[in-house]
């Protein structure tokens, strides 16, 4: 049974250990029709596209984390549309593990109501499986970033996902030295967009939650011994994941993270979804810092479903030419 989620801060290990399939919901190629009756046109197309998907496909339930103002309201909107939902209050301000552990305890109760049972052994198994998947994805991306795979693994059973990534690692070839571009943004579930960058002569690195932000974690250095400590492990794992603009960090950790990623890149592209407030607030100041480092920077604004890939191509080729 599929349990849909939208944000990479969702503790998918818990959903999985309860016997459900954690399924990341993205906008698809379907035009947005039904969702327009539920939410205004100035919401981002990832929200509207996901709602469209939820209204048309079969899901057991949906899990939300409060990451932006749109997601905060989307939980209720999904519920009004007749869906089973739960919102986990992942803190906006990163730091208080104890508080979040309690939220996770409550989430276990919700999973139980949905017909899923979580116990320590099964949770440990899920934690191990996802860590294995994340490490393998890191390995694959070190050879050659494969966005089609990174997106696909978020919608299939984790054991199958590991097998798929293993296969891809076997056949992947180390990319040749080419000018490198860092693509930063929220989601872009259309693998063709990344191909455009490659076809224009770039090698690609990313800071996206359909890319590296799905698998970049620094894991806590303790071994859980019971359910409670496993929850603590999850809380710390997610608080220490690759930083996201929807969260508030000490010492501007998010900016520092992107600047570090950009060090070995020739260009940076902000691939932003229209109406995505957290990214658009960061954009001007982050851009200035990147330009200060001598990087060529471009902004490409997207709306899903992407209708004109050729427009993106023109922008990317123009960027490639100035390098």
């Amino acid at each position: 049974m599929k349990v849909g989620y939208l944000c990479t801060f969702t503790p998918k290990e818990l959903i999985h250990s309860a016997g459900f399939l954690p399924y990341r919901v993205f906008a698809t190629d379907r035009p947005i029709n039904l969702a327009s009756a539920y939410i205004q046109s100035y919401s981002c197309s990832q929200a509207r596209g996901s709602l469209e998907c939820a209204l048309q496909d079969d899901f057991h339930a949906f899990v939300f984390t409060r990451c932006c103002d749109t997601l905060m309201r989307l939980t209720d909107i999904f519920e009004f549309a007749g869906k089973r939902v739960c919102n986990i209050e992942f803190p906006t301000k990163i730091g208080n593990v104890e508080y979040y552990v309690q939220e996770l305890r409550d989430f276990i109760e919700v999973l139980r109501e949905w017909g899923g049972e979580v116990n320590f052994e099964r949770l440990m198994e899920s934690l191990k499986l996802y860590r294995k998947l994340e490490e393998k994805l890191k390995q694959l991306f070190a050879l050659s970033p494969d966005y089609e795979t990174a997106i696909k693994v978020q919608q299939i059973e984790v054991r199958d996902a590991i097998k798929l990534v293993d296969e891809k690692i076997r056949t992947a070839k180390k990319e040749k030295e080419k000018p490198k571009v860092l693509i930063t943004g929220s989601v872009c579930p259309y693998p063709k967009v990344y191909e455009i960058f490659r076809e224009a002569g770039f090698s690609v690195k990313d800071d996206l939650c359909t890319g590296s932000r799905f698998f970049e974690y620094s894991y806590p250095d303790f071994e859980p011994v019971d359910l409670d400590s496993a929850l603590k492990f999850i809380a710390e794992k997610y608080m220490n994941k690759s930083p996201c603009p929807t969260k508030h960090y000490e010492k501007d950790k998010r900016f520092e993270y992107v600047l570090k990623l950009a060090e070995d890149c020739d260009a940076v592209v902000f691939l932003l979804v229209k109406f995505c407030d957290p990214h658009f607030f960061d954009y001007p100041q982050l851009r200035a810092r990147l330009e200060g480092m001598g990087k060529k920077v471009a902004l490409i604004e997207l709306e899903f479903p992407v209708v004109s890939f050729e427009q993106i191509r023109t922008r990317v080729e123009a960027l490639r030419e100035v390098i």
Binding site: A37, I39, Q40, Y42, S43, R73, I77, F80, D277
Partner: peptide
């Protein structure tokens, strides 16, 4: 008032209306 500038205030108005 569906206010383009205030998403948390405006999103959900369609459902609240009902």
């Amino acid at each position: 008032h569906s206010n383009r500038s205030c998403k948390p205030y405006s999103f959900g108005q369609y459902e609240i209306q009902k």
